[in-house]
Simulated assay, not measured.
Amino acid sequence: MTTSLASLGWDERFQDSFRRFRRPGNCAGRVTRVDRGVCTVLTAAGTVRASLAGRMLSAVAKDPLAMPSVGDWVVVRTWEADRRTIEAVLPRRSALVRHTAGKAAEGQAIAANADAVAVVESLDPDPDSGRIERLAALAHASGAEPLLVLTKADMVPDVDLLAADLGEAMPGCPVITVSSVTGQGMERLAGYLGDGRTLALVGASGAGKSTLVNALAGVEAMATRGLRADGRGRHTTSHRALIALPQGGSIIDTPGLRVVGLFDRRPGDAASPTDGLARAFEDLEELATECRFRDCRHDTEPGCAILAAVADGLVTTRRVDNWRKLQREQAFARSRADARARAVDRDRKRKLAAAERARLRKL
């Protein structure tokens, strides 16, 4: 089965990036799934499986963000015996990046080249504004357009009032309430799709992401399961996947995120250098510029504009506390990344010095 690359988002920008790789045996494709370093890729000729070329393995060893992710446009080379390798990842237009678990100060791309990122939160049971804010920072930092999608609208009373309250966790972003049962909001959400456009979904387990994918695709593209007896979500989606839609465009579904560590990217890093945390809390960032002291910690300082806004009921204490918590987390991640960069630089200098000593000994 042939695939229209344009319907998947292939455009002049990616075409220009691919020119230097254009040679017999090479073709472009979009990654739909990654399994232990082997990628499923949609190409103009159909779906293929490709492992990482040596140069890609070397790049990933130096920087995990170089690892192909779902949504990436890649260069696929076909060898003898119908063996295929991924030779390069084309520059990303956007990337959802989170901090990896463990001690290493590294980032992990969980989705790439989305035009919009939907933070999906279930209205039943117990929606969490703090979780929405954390995922909003991730979405803002991606470089794609963020929006809030509230699922299971048919299961709660006063849905508009609840949506307005949760929408304060993502000020300035579209808020869409949807129900896969009644169809409420699905047409509006479908407006973020279309030929060549990609919508990525992020959220906790049980938020209804896979159900949304199936409703938008018109087929059961992703398996779904009910909530646990305690109302908590089940991990149904075990892998990230890009689903091409019959009407054009695509959706990226991601597993439920239990931990979303903010990864601090420097300007010039892959995709967007946007400070997602600052954009997610833009209202508080603007208020902070009105504080009397430039180094105000928004705790007990006199003339603090944020404390005044809390006292006046313009912002909640919960939102301010979560902002400060995420700032501390980001600062810690930045310090770890800086320490790792210094360690890499020291190691490089030691190797250069050792090489120079060896050269002098031979003279």
Score class of each variant (00 low, 15 high):
G172H: 05
C173I: 01
P174D: 14
V175G: 06
I176H: 10
T177K: 14
T177P: 01
V178R: 06
S180C: 11
S180K: 12
S180Q: 12
T182W: 12
M186P: 05
E187K: 00
Y192P: 04
G194E: 13
L199Q: 05
L199H: 04
G203I: 09
A204Y: 09
G206S: 13
A207R: 08
G208K: 08
T211E: 13
L212R: 02
N214R: 08
N214A: 05
A215T: 02
G218M: 01
A221W: 02
M222H: 01
M222C: 02
A223K: 14
A223G: 07
R228D: 14
G231S: 08
R232F: 07
G233W: 09
R234Y: 03
H235K: 13
T236N: 09
H239T: 06
H239V: 01
L242M: 09
L242W: 05
I243V: 14
I243Q: 05
L245F: 02
P246K: 10
S250H: 00
I252D: 04
I252V: 14
I252Y: 11
D253W: 02
L257Q: 15
R258A: 06
V260P: 00
G261A: 14
G261W: 15
F263R: 03
R265A: 15
R266G: 11
D269T: 05
A271E: 10
G276W: 09
A278W: 06
A280N: 07
E282M: 00
L284P: 05
C291T: 00
F293E: 03
F293H: 10
R297Y: 02
R297P: 03
H298C: 03
D299L: 01
